[in-house]
Amino acid sequence: MTQSSDTSEKRNSDFERSGSAAKKGVPRSIWFHLHFWLGWITAIPVILVCISGGVLAFESYLRRWEFPEQYDLVADSDPMSVDEVLELYRSAKPKLVVHHLGFPELPTHAYTAYVSMFDDNGKRTGGGFVIANQYTGELTYAGEKFTISGSMKELHRHLAAGEVGRQIVAISSLILAVTCFIGLVLWWPMRGRTFARAWRRGRALDWHNAIGLVTLGPLVIMALTGVLLTYSSHIFPVLDKLQSEPSKPQDPVVEVGEDQEKLPVSVALGEIEKNFPDGKITGVQPTGSSSTPYVFFVNNDGLDYRVCMNPYTGTEMSRDDGRPKGAVSWFRKNYFKYHTLSFNLFTKSLWGTLSVAGGILGMTGVLTSMRRWQRRAKSSSSS
C-alpha cells in the first residue's frame, strides 16, 4: 500500500516538475507547456463563460420571475387580435419591425417579438426582445430592464463586449476543447487514484485533475457546439455540400402582381387553423420583402411544422414537418440541444452544474500555476 502511494506521489511530482530527463519527459513537457499557456491565455473568458452558462441553464425559470409582464397577465377583457398586436408594434415610437412574433401559450401569457428599431429617417437604431400585453396594449422593452438572465446572456455570448467579445468567446471555446484533450494526455501517466488524491490531499492540482476528468466530455461538447453557434452561417453552407439538399428548408418566392397588397396576417392564420385543426400555432414571421411569404410555426402530432403562406392570397405554399432530411440536417436541428441539454429539469441541472465546474476547473488551474510560481520564487531567493 505504501509502495503504491509512493509511486502515485512520484508520478504527480514528475508532472509538476515537467522536466524529467527520461525519454517520456520530453513530449510530456511539450504537452505541459501547451496546456499551461493556452489555459492562461483563455482563463478569464472560459471562467466567465462557464459560470454564466451554469446560471443560464435555469434561464426559463429566471425569466418567469423577472418578467411578470410576460407570464402573469390579468385576462380581464377580450384580447387583441394578431393584426392588432402587430399594429401595436408598427405604431410604436421608435418604429418597430417584427421579425418573429411568438404566440402566448396561455391566456395569462403575453405576445413576444424579436424586433428591429428604426428612427424617422428609416435608419436602424437597434433591436431586441419586446413584450406586448394583448389586453392593455402595453409594450415592455426587455432590453431596458436589468435582469440576471439578460446580464448572464450578455456575458455568456460575448463577454458584454459586442462583436469583439463574441469572437473572444468563440476562440476561447475552441482553445478550451484543445486544452481538455491535452489535459487528458497529461493526466494519463498518473491516472491511478485521481479522486482519492483529491479527497485525501485536497491540493489545487489534485482537484484540477479530478474536476477535469469529470467534465472533460461535457466541456468539449459545450465548447464545440458554442463555436458552431457563432460561425453557423459559415459552417453549414460548407456542410450542405456533403448532402444532396439544403439542411434548412428553403422558403418559396412569392410572385407579386400589379397593385397587390398583402392581406392581414389573420387571414393566413385562419387558413392555418383550418389545415391544422389540432395544431398549436407558436409563432409567425410576418416581415420581409414583397416576395416573401408569411411563415407560421405549428406544433402538430409531435412535429414542428414550418408553413409558408402566400401573403396576397392567404393560401398555403409549402410546409416542412421539421424532420431531418440527411445527416447534416439532423445535426443542424439537434446540435443546440446538446449545447444546453435543456430536455428537462434534471438534464438542465446536470449541464448547469458541469458548466460551473468548468469555471472551477479554470480557477484551480490558475491557483496551481500561481503556487508553482511562488515555489519557484522562494527557491530562487533561498539559493
Rank of each mutant, 00 (worst) to 15 (best):
T147E: 04
S149Y: 00
S149F: 01
G150N: 06
G150C: 10
S151A: 13
M152N: 06
E154M: 14
L155T: 03
R157M: 11
L159I: 04
A160T: 15
A160S: 15
A161V: 06
G162L: 02
G162P: 04
E163W: 02
V164H: 06
G165S: 08
G165C: 08
G165I: 08
G165M: 07
G165R: 01
R166S: 11
Q167D: 14
A170I: 14
A170N: 12
S173R: 07
L174E: 08
L174K: 12
I175H: 08
L176R: 03
A177G: 14
V178I: 13
C180Q: 08
C180K: 02
G183R: 01
G183Y: 00
L184G: 09
V185F: 08
L186I: 11
W187N: 03
P189E: 10
M190D: 11
R191K: 10
G192H: 12
G192L: 09
T194M: 09
T194G: 08
T194Q: 02
F195L: 14
F195M: 14
R197Q: 09
R197V: 08
R197M: 09
R201T: 04
G202H: 05
A204I: 08
A204G: 07
D206L: 01
W207Q: 01
W207A: 00
H208A: 06
H208Q: 09
N209Y: 01
G212V: 07
G212P: 02
L213A: 12
V214E: 02
V214R: 01
V214Q: 03
V214L: 09
V214M: 01
T215I: 07
L216S: 00
L219Q: 07
V220E: 03
V220N: 03
I221C: 05
M222R: 07
A223G: 04
A223N: 04
T225P: 02
G226A: 11
G226C: 07
V227A: 13
L228H: 11
L228N: 13
L228V: 15
L228A: 13
L229T: 13
L229H: 14
T230K: 15
Y231G: 15
S233A: 15
S233G: 12
S233R: 15
H234D: 14
H234M: 12
I235L: 12
I235M: 08
F236Y: 06
V238P: 00
L239S: 06
K241E: 11
K241V: 10
L242G: 10
S244Q: 08
E245C: 05
P246M: 10
S247V: 03
P249N: 06
P249V: 08
Q250F: 07
V254L: 05
G257M: 12
E258A: 15
E258V: 11
E258C: 11
D259L: 13
D259E: 14
Q260T: 09
E261S: 12
K262L: 06
L263R: 02
